[in-house]
């Protein structure tokens, strides 16, 4: 009896909260908020709240066309789901309501960072299997961009871990809740993280892999219907997950508040991160790939290194 109850609870956690269904709703909402903010800043009305859902339903109901010349048709079909599952698993490591995450072990920060790079790899493979010239160029860009932003991003994620003295996301969030003043130590790292987030989520100014005016749909050019709907969903979920991860790692998650209130605070802070992302997205032009690499390696990596040193010194002083 106990076992069945536990199993049911686990199923609930995976399928409903904080698993698939919750993430699905949250992703659509975040997508809408992002689009609405973007539109309002451009002095437009913006879409109604159900627009992302309507888009998703429309894509799901459309016919999926698989190109004749695609190499590895099974791979072509499986990759969107792989991308989604990777980001969904990642949310289990993050303490959303309260201070406890669903799954937690020493070093889950690294695991989360790796899980977050799986969608990027999926997008690269998606471009590669499509074998159309636009997808090929897009796939090359995905990989090049990955090498540019991933290093500073991982480097700045190490900073809080050093300050908190733990590789657990849960512990880091707990540490910052206990010592809120220590958050300011990582302010540089947080800024770098927000910039690399634009690269991770492939948004302006780093939406190079699917720059529509250059290479049409980029890696997703050949995708349609259900599969494309799931890719879109994966990107929206990734946005939520990355924002949640940064919130937990840099801003102390729900700041020690338990239950529903903690959850609300958490959502509010995630929304702030999405707002910052929307502002960056609307205030800039897309840069070229080599400009992006230059920027990441010449500006972001040194700042990230500096942040590491600051973190180590802060740790030494604070004990």
């Amino acid at each position: 009896m106990e076992m069945i109850k536990e199993l049911l609870i686990q199923l609930f956690e995976i399928l409903i909260y904080p698993g698939l269904l919750f993430l699905f709703v949250a992703a659509l909402l975040a997508d809408w908020i992002d689009r609405k903010l973007y539109a309002r800043m451009q002095n437009r009305q913006g879409p109604p709240w159900y627009q992302p859902l309507a888009d998703f339903v429309k894509l799901i109901s459309k016919e999926t066309i698989i190109p004749k010349h695609a190499v590895g048709k099974h791979l072509f079909r499986v990759l969107p789901y792989l991308a989604i599952s990777a980001v969904v698993v990642c949310i289990f490591f993050i303490p959303i309501s309260g201070s406890l995450a669903l799954m937690s072990f020493q070093g889950d920060l690294i695991a989360a960072a790796y899980l977050l790079s799986i969608p990027t790899m999926c997008f690269f493979l998606i471009g590669w299997t499509s074998s159309s010239p636009y997808s090929a160029v897009g796939a090359m860009r995905v990989l090049t961009q990955f090498f540019a932003y991933e290093v500073p991003m991982i480097l700045v994620l190490i900073g809080p871990a050093i300050v908190a003295g733990s590789w657990r996301i849960e512990d880091i969030a707990y540490y910052y809740s206990a010592n809120p003043s220590m958050m300011f130590v990582n302010i540089l790292g947080f800024i770098v993280a927000l910039i690399t987030m634009q690269g991770k989520l492939e948004r302006v100014p780093f939406d190079i892999p699917h720059a529509e005016t250059e290479i049409v749909g980029g890696v997703f050019t050949e995708y349609s219907g259900k599969l494309y709907g799931f890719i879109k969903l994966a990107i929206s979920i990734e946005m939520i997950v990355v924002a949640a991860l940064f919130n937990a790692v840099f801003m102390g998650g729900s700041l020690g508040l338990e239950g529903f209130l903690g959850f609300l605070l958490f959502c509010f802070k995630v929304l702030i991160i999405i707002l910052i992302s929307a502002i960056i997205r609307s205030a800039m032009a897309r840069v070229r790939i080599e400009q992006m690499i230059n920027f990441c390696w010449r500006v972001l990596v040194p700042i990230a290194m500096l942040q590491l040193i600051i973190s180590i010194i802060a740790r030494a002083f604070h004990g």
Binding site: L37, A39, R40, M41, Q42, N43, R44, Q45, G46
Partner: peptide, 8 residues
């Protein structure tokens, strides 16, 4: 523009 009335 965020606080202005939408022009669309």
């Amino acid at each position: 523009n965020f606080f202005k009335k939408a022009s669309t």
